[in-house]
């Protein structure tokens, strides 16, 4: 039975041996890490793009509004009662009643048709509720559900919502999220292939050493161990480099994005990679590295047999 001290010493030795091998071939090592970093940075950048787009879209969806137009014969008291009922409905953040008189006054003030309105016998405008959904309902399905609910009131003439752009925006973000998933999978497989291939080349180069090791009683696991550590190092450094690349890319975009937002009269600060996301990226890279090394090494090492 191997003692814990010996066990950890063996692993430390395998790790150092893996480092040693990688340092002895710096160009190959750097190139492999660079390829892994790029492969990890691409989906990460897309992820940040989706995240920023969602945040930006979130700001816009805050201003989603429905206009509930009552029939002209609905009395103000009834409209007030219905506005209160609307406020109690789940999914409604805010419901403001604009009476027919207030609407007419406003129209008079801003339309420039004051004199023409004076010629009218009565007020042709209905009472209106402007309604803002809460966060959970600020999406096409939520808005549609509110619209159905409000349209069912007999006092309501029509409910207006120009929600097509929200649907389109959400569809675009969903598409981007799917593209991110596809990118992540394809490039993840790419990382596996890059690491696996690097490890296979290394194994082929050290074939005679592996044969001797097996001939003196080395198990497949023993022979495999330093190669798995090479995969860990590739993945870890590739992940860290990807974090660096994405951070640099975001840093270089903060100023132009801010300037663009200011041209549209807004303020928007680009959100970069957060510590938890960086940790996930580095851990993911490490996992892909060790998995790629395993895939590259396991069968090949098992097939190498001493020739004597």
């Amino acid at each position: 039975m191997i003692s814990p001290g010996t066990y950890f010493s063996r692993h430390a030795q395998a790790l150092l041996s893996a480092f040693g091998r990688l340092i002895r071939q710096p160009l190959g090592t750097v190139l492999t890490i660079f390829v892994i970093a790029i492969a990890l940075a691409l989906p990460s950048t897309l992820w940040l793009l989706v995240k920023n787009a969602r945040i930006a879209a979130g700001d816009v969806t805050d201003s989603i509004e429905l206009s509930v137009f009552f029939k002209t014969d609905v009395p103000l008291a009834k409209a007030e009662q219905l506005a209160e009922a609307a406020r109690q409905r789940p999914g409604v953040e805010e419901a403001t009643l604009i009476s027919a008189d207030e609407a007419l006054e406003e129209f008079r003030q801003y339309s420039g048709f004051g004199a023409a309105l004076d010629a009218l016998q009565g007020n042709p405008l209905p009472h209106v509720i402007t309604l803002r959904p809460d966060v959970a309902y600020a999406n096409p399905q939520g808005v549609e559900s509110l619209k159905r609910y409000l349209s069912a009131w007999p006092e309501v003439e029509t409910v207006q919502f120009d929600g097509e752009w929200v649907r389109r925006l959400t569809a675009i973000l969903d598409l981007l999220r799917n593209v991110f998933a596809v990118f992540a999978i394809v490039l993840g497989v790419g990382v596996l292939a890059v690491v696996g291939n690097a490890i296979r080349l290394e194994i082929r180069a050290r074939r005679s050493e592996i044969e001797v090791t097996k001939l003196v009683g080395g198990t497949n696991a023993f022979v495999r161990r330093p190669f798995l550590y090479e995969g860990v190092i590739f993945g870890l450094l590739g992940g860290a480099a990807a974090v660096g690349i994405v951070s640099l890319a975001v840093a270089s975009l903060i100023e132009p994005v801010g300037r663009l937002a200011s041209l549209y009269g807004g303020r928007y600060a680009l959100v970069g990679i957060e510590p938890l996301e960086a940790l996930v990226l580095i851990s993911g890279g490490t996992l892909l590295g060790v998995l790629g090394a395993w895939l590259g090494a396991a069968r090949l090492i098992a097939r190498i047999e001493a020739r004597g």
């Binding site: 066990y7 001797v212 003196v216 080395g218 198990t219």
Partner: peptide, 11 residues
């Protein structure tokens, strides 16, 4: 040392 290393002998 190789045969001893592969058999997890103490350092």
């Amino acid at each position: 040392a190789l045969p001893l290393v592969v058999s997890d002998t103490r350092f």
